[in-house]
């Protein structure tokens, strides 16, 4: 066991789970988490290989080291699960999230929201005389800050994808 983290410290971990793209597989993974009392902080899923029929599920969870070890072992135990990688533990990774952020406002509010979007490199993907929808990609933390600032201007709605992540470097999963 890893000794630089105390056994009772709760840490956030990002798992990347490659699964057979078959009916019920997401339910199996989510059911495992709820059935055993593990947290899901974020979850994304999509097919990544239509030839082999694989989907990838990215799950952000938190727990003590022993709970994180259990989560990994329990995920690996599921029959349709092909590979599990703990991106937090196994090395460095890139983590990104996308958000669509709707802001309402006229006059100065429009100008302020555009300036803020520029600062965060967000794109306008829809606009009306009294609203914008911005698309922003970045770390969850960046998204939090962008949405937080928009709240002062006229935030009316947000949709977020949840985190997708991949290991840095040349190796395959």
């Amino acid at each position: 066991m890893n000794n630089d983290i105390t056994p009772n410290e709760v840490c956030e971990h990002t798992f990347s789970v490659l699964v057979d793209n078959e009916a019920g597989v997401l339910h199996r993974v989510v059911g495992l988490f709820s059935g055993r009392g593990y947290n899901i902080d974020s979850l994304t899923v999509s097919e990544v290989d239509s030839v082999e029929g694989y989907s990838k599920i990215t799950i952000v969870t938190s727990g003590t080291l022993s709970v994180i070890e259990q989560i990994r072992a329990q995920l690996e135990r599921l029959v349709p699960v092909q590979k599990v990688s703990d991106l937090t533990r196994d090395g460095r990774s890139v983590q990104r999230e996308l958000a669509l952020v709707k802001v309402q406002g006229e006059g100065d509010d429009r100008i302020n929201s555009m300036q803020l979007a520029d600062k965060f490199q967000a794109q306008v993907v829809d606009s009306t005389p009294e609203s914008f929808v911005f698309e922003i990609v970045g770390s969850s933390d960046t998204l939090d800050r962008f949405i937080g600032e928009m709240r002062h201007i006229g935030l009316v709605d947000v949709s977020r994808t949840g985190i997708v992540a991949i290991a840095r470097g040349a190796d395959e999963m």
Binding site: M1, S66, E69, Q70, A73, Q74, E76, R77
Partner: peptide, 11 residues
């Protein structure tokens, strides 16, 4: 034979 049995309750 089940890796999830190891360190589940007793290290």
């Amino acid at each position: 034979i089940d890796p999830s049995s190891l360190n589940k309750t007793i290290v």
